[in-house]
Design a protein around this nucleic acid. Structure first.
Lengths: 186, 186
DNA sequence: TTAACCATGTAAAAAGTTACATGATTGT
DNA sequence: ACAATCATGTAACTTTTTACATGGTTAA
């Protein structure tokens, strides 16, 4: 699993607590883990045991103490090694496509309503990504190249949603054509 | 989980064995489960217990006996219900994007080589999907609408890979431009 | 002879999700 | 009064992957 490496990546940007990591995970579209407590806090302990990170405990007055994790030299080279490794092909989990695949029992109206709901979801995501790119809330811009890459990461998601919306339009057009051709109502 | 429903969907097309299901799972890009034995055989037993499928055991001469599962009326309405349900937004698991995100430690050459490897993977996938659409090996074309939908399902994947390749071209162009602008070697 | 195909399954581990637990503070 | 933020963690559960187990047949 590369959850470990994703966390190390964030820590290679700047030291942070598990709580902060969790927030970044939630805000970043192209990270697919839910970033729940169980995973993050456990993984941080493991990374510590492996010598990739170290922590500093900071006491606070009105809030609970926080553990700020920072990456070690060993951790940095681990990130480098991982980042150079052979990339896996992406895997998309799209249950809507399965619903479409086995929609034979649905009427024309039910099918169109299903497509509507999906299109709505995608439009939301599309807008959200454009907004996130604009706001640049998670944005480790340490140099020109990194700034450019992070913009392109958001652009990747935006393009994917744009592509999905175009496909939906084509799908709808094709269905209308088939519907219209048959001659008279069913 | 909708693995249950995906299996039911296949069985709503035609009766088949766990072994056949496994092969269809492996051949169909837009199904994301690995479709390993453990999941499929166990799920078939569960579906039987719920009354969604029934099985017929067929003895064979030179091969092990096979259990042919067929869907029940109850199973068919379950598929219908599920297919009409609110679709979830898709979630893409792309570890390459994470590698890019934390590629700050990589040289220009290492970064370009990483992009090359990814592009190669995507090109392979893209070609494979186009070939699968052409061959129509998994293709429950029971009527005009279903045939159209299954073509569009493959088209969805083809478009997604096409989109990814276009993005990669843009990414490369942007990097080249930045590289050229800086003035002189690093 | 080596691998792939046919066809079923089980065991164990890893990964991921949901809910619970604490407890003060700050904003609506 | 209610929800959200800060901040950590644990317990129970579900999902998914990997590997093991059997054993004859067929094609390179």
């Amino acid at each position: 699993m590369s959850l470990k490496h994703t966390i190390l990546g964030f820590l290679s940007w700047k030291p942070m607590t598990g709580y902060e990591l969790k927030k970044f995970f939630a805000e970043t579209e192209f990270i697919y883990w839910s970033g729940n407590n169980n995973q993050i806090y456990k993984t941080l302990v493991e990374l510590g045991a492996e010598g990739f990170v170290e922590k500093v405990v900071v006491q606070q007055e009105n809030y609970p103490a926080k553990k700020i994790y920072h990456i070690t030299g060993k951790g940095l080279s681990e990130v480098r090694e991982w980042a150079m490794g052979r990339p896996e092909p992406p895997s998309a989990r799209n249950s809507f496509l399965m619903q479409l695949a086995w929609s034979d029992g649905l009427s024309e109206a039910e099918l169109l309503s299903l497509i509507d709901s999906y299109q709505y979801e995608i439009e939301m995501k599309h807008v959200m990504c454009k907004e996130k790119l604009r706001r640049k809330s998670v944005y480790p811009g340490r140099n020109e190249r990194e700034r450019y890459i992070w913009e392109m990461l958001w652009q990747n998601r935006i393009n994917a949603y744009r592509c999905e919306l175009d496909w939906l339009t084509a799908l709808r057009n094709g269905l209308d054509k088939k519907d219209g051709m048959g001659g008279g109502p069913k």
